[in-house]
Simulated assay, not measured.
Amino acid sequence: MKLRKASAAAAAVVVLSLTATACGGDSADSGNGGGDKITIGIKFDQPGLGLKKPDGTFAGFDVDVATYVAKELGYDAKNIVWKEAPSAERENLISNGDVKFVAASYTINDERKKKVDFAGPYFLAHQDLLVRTDDSSITKAADLNSKKLCSVTGSTSAQNVKNDFAPKADLQNVGGYSECLTGLENKAVDALTTDDSILAGYASQQEHQGKFKLAGLKLSDEPYGIGLKKGDTDLQKKINAALTKMESDGSWEKAVTANFGPANYKNEPAPKINEGS
C-alpha cells in the first residue's frame, strides 16, 4: 500500500511539473520585463543601420529603434535576442513566428503588405549615389552615362538608374557592398548606388571617413517600417505609439546623429506614422 501511495504521489508531482512547464512555455516574448526574451530581426551587415561587431554586440540606427521599441513593449535591452534578417528572408521570419518583429531597412510597399503588416514608417530614405570625395564630375544620375556604376547582385537600385536615368551606364554587379567600396576607392568604379541611409552608414565607418560623399540625389522614396505578423493590430498600435514617443522625446534625432553624422548625411525629418500601415 505504501508503495502504491508513494508512486501516486510521485506521479502527481510529475503531472504538476509538466502542467507548470506547459503554462510557462510561452514566457519568451510575453513582455513582462523580467527574464523573458524578445527576438527581433535586423541586418547584421549594414554599418549605420544593423551591424554585428567583432565583439558580438550590435550597433546601428535600426538597432537603436528596435531597442527603444522593445523597451516600450516591456523588454530590457539585455533580454533582446537579435536574429539576422536578410532581405529575402524577412517575410518568412515574420510569418513563421521566428521573430516578434523586423527592423532591417525594410521598405514599406504594397507587395510586401500582402504578406506582413507594418508599423511606422520610422525613417524615409532615398536611393542615392556614393562617389569619391574628390570627384566633382557626378552631380546628377545622368552623369553616370559611360561611367562604371557598382551595386550588389540582385539589387534593383542599379538597374533603376540604368533604366530610368543613365541607360549608358556601365553596370558592375558584385557580391557585396564592401567590394563596391574597394572598387570606388581604387577608381575601378565611379559610383555605388543603394539607399542613402546604407551609403551614409558605410561612409561613416572610421576607415572610410573623408574618402566618400553622397551625391544628395533623391532617386526614389524608401519609407522604412517595422514588419510584423499579418493581422496583429495590437502589436502594430503599440509599436506605432513607441515610435511616436521616440520622435517626440528626442531619441530619434539622437540616434540619427549618432549613426549617420560622420557622413554629413542630410536626413529627412521623422516621417508621419501611418496608423494603418
Rank of each mutant, 00 (worst) to 15 (best):
K53V: 04
D45P: 03
F44L: 07
T57V: 02
D64S: 13
D26F: 15
D45E: 12
A28Y: 10
D64N: 14
A59S: 15
K53G: 05
P47Q: 06
D55K: 01
F58A: 02
G33M: 11
P54I: 00
D26V: 13
S27L: 11
D29K: 10
L49Y: 04
L51V: 04
G34A: 14
A28F: 11
K52I: 06
K53R: 15
P47A: 06
A59T: 10
F61N: 01
D36F: 06
G60W: 01
D62V: 04
F58Q: 03
Q46L: 15
G33T: 08
A59F: 08
T39L: 04
I40W: 01
D36K: 04
F58D: 00
A59N: 10
S30W: 08
L49C: 06
G31R: 08
F58N: 01
K37F: 11
L49G: 03
G35L: 13
D36R: 07
K43Q: 12
G50R: 01
T57M: 06
D36A: 09
G56A: 03
I42L: 10
G60Q: 05
V63S: 03
F61E: 00
G33D: 06
L51M: 14
L49P: 00
D64V: 05
A28I: 06
Q46T: 12
D55T: 04
L49D: 08
P54C: 04
G41I: 07
I40P: 00
S30M: 12
Q46S: 14
V63I: 14
K43T: 13
L49K: 04
K53E: 13
V65R: 00
T57L: 07
D29P: 01
S27P: 00
F58C: 05
V65Q: 00
I40A: 06
G50Y: 05
I38A: 02
G33S: 13
T39N: 10
V63H: 00
P47K: 04
I40M: 07
N32H: 14
N32T: 15
F44A: 13
G34D: 12
F58H: 12
V65C: 05
T39Y: 09
D36L: 05
K43W: 12
A59C: 02
Q46I: 13
K52T: 09
T57I: 10
L51W: 05
G41Q: 01
F44I: 02
T57R: 08
G31Q: 04
K37L: 15
D55E: 01
D36T: 04
D26W: 12
L51C: 08
A59P: 06
G31D: 03
K37V: 13
V65I: 15
V65D: 01
D62M: 03
N32R: 12
D45G: 09
A59V: 07
D36C: 09
K43L: 15
F61G: 04
D62L: 01
P47E: 02
I42A: 05
I42D: 00
D26M: 13
I38F: 01
L51H: 05
D29L: 08
L49H: 06
G34L: 14
K52F: 06
S27F: 13
I42T: 09
S27C: 12
D45K: 09
A28K: 10
G41D: 07
